[in-house]
Amino acid sequence: MCLAIPGKIMSISGDDAFSRMGKVNFGGVVKEVSLAYTPEAQVGDYVIVHVGFAISTLDEEEAHRVFEYLQQMEELQELEGGQQVSVTD
């Protein structure tokens, strides 16, 4: 229901909160996007964009959480000397 992808804010224009627009770079493709719903977003931030609107500012710390979680599990696994499970059992 909602294709939304992260892009980096290159510049911001517009005066009042609702008309604040940002030029956002998605891996080399730049699109003008409304920042009305992300008043906290600044140049250099990554925002998640859906149908031309930024709907959240991406939390870069949280972005690594899925990998840290994986790391801890693997270490836990080694500690317990767990058996190797093949994925395609």
């Binding site: 909160a17 719903y37 992300t38 709907i55 959240s56 991406l58 939390d59 972005a63 899925v66």
Partner: peptide, 14 residues
Amino acid sequence: QYTRSVRREGNQPA
């Protein structure tokens, strides 16, 4: 799980 984008109270202005 989607902590890089979702917060418990969501997007208030939206």
